[in-house]
Design a protein around this nucleic acid. Sequence first.
DNA 1: GCTCTGTTCAAGCGCGTGATTGAATAAGTC
DNA 2: GACTTATTCAATCACGCGCTTGAACAGAGC
Lengths: 192, 192
Amino acid sequence: MRLMEAALDLLSERGKEGVSLRELTDAADANVAAVSYHFGSLQALLDEAIEEALERYLDAQQEAVSALGPEPTLEELAAAFARPMISALTKGGRDRGAIRIVARAAIDPPAGWDRFDARFDQIRADVVRALKARLSGVKTRDLIFRIRCAAGMLNWIALAPVGAEVSDMSEKQAERLLVPILAGALRGTNLR
Amino acid sequence: MRLMEAALDLLSERGKEGVSLRELTDAADANVAAVSYHFGSLQALLDEAIEEALERYLDAQQEAVSALGPEPTLEELAAAFARPMISALTKGGRDRGAIRIVARAAIDPPAGWDRFDARFDQIRADVVRALKARLSGVKTRDLIFRIRCAAGMLNWIALAPVGAEVSDMSEKQAERLLVPILAGALRGTNLR
DNA sequence: GCTCTGTTCAAGCGCGTGATTGAATAAGTC
DNA sequence: GACTTATTCAATCACGCGCTTGAACAGAGC
């Protein structure tokens, strides 16, 4: 569907408040009424696009994390956790666009996103389990917070100007740059 | 000025695209024409508010970093770097609002923000100098990237839901939680 | 009392927005 | 060919937007 593609493109550039019906239908080479006809409203189309982007991202991250061996190192864990983001950023195009939509939405989640809470919790639980083998002294609550900080850092890179640097690299280069930082954040410093 | 206060409040809640002239003047209990009269336009008022918030933040961060001793530990450095943000978040109210405005603006900097590039570079240079004493093997370019990642993580915490947790803590608690993560990110993992 | 200056106000302008409408067209189905 | 259904289209609606206008008001200086 051309409308959905145009919605994803515009959402990634301008955010969910910056997409007007006219420019969307112009970009999709469609009539304004087509949006109401197929999706009910502009908002419904945008919501659908955002949810689709999030679902794809969660699928990729969950798969990457569960593909890890039994006792991964911090770096292996961080690499798996970050791979979907790094891959999308360095690949560019629609993939990078979709990931930016998700990152934007994570700042103030749209209504109804508690629907995805269980998936977020599941992924974090998997990461926590792997982390505990390496960081035995840290409370679970703190580990979860560190994971959220690491995810936040990735989201920031997807959105902010600093991420342009990463987008220009190869996937390997970006991984070599980012994984030590993420792993360092997960490990922390105060308790050895 | 009531208009400026209302602008800061609304900007921190909705971002720079989400503030309408009507709701601003309603919140400030003023007439719509007052904005044009005193500031020229709505955009000019918002720009002024954002720049003021950024300047205050840069001042605080620069002061905190330059107040460090000659060879600070990674934790001391991270604590100084993060103090203005942590302080504003835990303090709440207008301080927290102002910091969120800055964080939002950092995602896609308004036109003319290259004006502040020198200040950002200055602060980063100070941090790099202190970092080099502790991380002798890392390239300057990579250190700068790590600093930007750490700053990004703080900005993310200021904006995203995960930050609510931090906002409810005391400044000391928040520092104990965040500083090890930031210091860990700055140190990285792959080269000891 | 009169005027000048700074400020506030209700009313309205032009414009872009999301959404709707009824006609026109295309594609099956018998 | 006739009827039904799905889709597209130009035209239009009401609304909220940023901004301007000219009148009204208040205070200071003379």
